[in-house]
Design a protein around this nucleic acid. Sequence first.
RNA 1: GUGGCCUUAGCUCAAUCGGUAGAGCAUCGGAUUGUGGCUCCGAAGGUUGCGGGUUCAAGCCCCGUAGGCCACCCCA
Length: 426
Amino acid sequence: MPPSFRAPRGTRDLLPDEHAAFARLERIARELASRYGYHEMQTPIFEQAAVFERGIGAATDVVEKELFRVTPSRGEEREAWALRPEATAGICRAYVEHGMQTWPQPVRVTVTGPMFRYDRPQAGRYRQFWQWDVEAIGDPGPAVDAEIVELGARFYRDAGLADVELLLNSIGDPACRPAYLADLVAHYRANEAHLPELERRRLETNPLRLLDSKDPVMAEVNAGAPLITDRLCPACAAHFAAVRAHLDAMGVAYRLEPGLVRGLDYYTRTAFEFYRRGAEGQQQALGGGGRYDGLIQLLGGKPTPGIGFALGLDRVVLALASAGASRPANAAPVAVVVGADPGDTQGRLRIATELRGAGLPVRADLAVRKLGRQLEAAVREGAQFAVILGDELAAGEVQLRDLDGGSQKSVPLADLPALLRRKVRG
RNA sequence: GUGGCCUUAGCUCAAUCGGUAGAGCAUCGGAUUGUGGCUCCGAAGGUUGCGGGUUCAAGCCCCGUAGGCCACCCCA
């Protein structure tokens, strides 16, 4: 007996039924992107690890513990590579590498594909997961901020998720964040005696995170904490106000969430996340994004502003299922070619091939089984018609049977393609 | 990475006190020779996740391990 294999931990097979749900979302995303003027591109699944370390931030969890590192076992390359944990860093690397600053700005691009993070799997949290990523690079905003947020919100609506809530915040920039951070740390230091062990450690590594702590004892301490939105410098405050005004003008609903911070270092100013209403427990965001005005420079380019978001396709599929949405089905053939003579697979395949050559989605029953079984399979597959081969074939005719209604008529083989073409659903 | 629950056929699940595994669905075949979703009959499908241990005997008890799920953490 060979050993039994299984998909690596945290990965899964998208079998045809489930893949149909993903394909539908990708179709919606692709159509929206093109309607909004974002062009599809692809970056490598792996990059120099430094692209993520420099771009995302070496001290973030995503890089520190969740990066999937790749080491070639042979060859001259001594490069340290890593599977991409998100798309933005790679896109910005490509922006710099290919001199996209010479293109008309902003450069509007989108990437869809698998991302990788080495953390402990859970429902909706995989080591390989799919994202739809949208970026506008080279526009300081604020109008483009609102445009891209609205695009994200529209995706969920078009996908069929009505109860998605948009959380919005501004996290300042290098002009105002350091002073705010100092104030924040000072506030927590003053209350250090009340802080749980975990939060005390986070105070050293990532003080912003304390703000959205789930620990109930933190509620009181957080109530008195300074808010970033009260400490924004004039430029950031004006930017944030303008983003909100643009959203209001488009009628996009959002909730201001001063505790919203994003996990990656590169974010500045606008930050937003999408959650299912009632599931905002900071767990399982459906998507999120923000402005990253310092990232391009970090990756070796000239100072260039940018903004984008990423959506978790896996999580949207999950949310759709739990909302009771019906799954899209994979396409059924218009017709299945069956035959009275079980052994005549040549005849069935030949006719099916002719029909396929005429552009029709047709399956031939290639199993050696009696006609009844062939028809049964065709019906269960959802085919509209059965093309039945019998003795009439000698006269150049076949039986065309309507599998929904049950009516059947003899038609000349030559007329079949035109006849079926008129019957193709949709 | 921490804690907890779970794992029996492709899927959903049974199996009394520990006595060497069964059903439904799905698959394939048959029900007098060229006609379907129903029905009936039959077949195939398992080292009970994997590895040890206890026992005359383990799906069941014990240990380890892998995977899934839940909470934390983190994020999409």
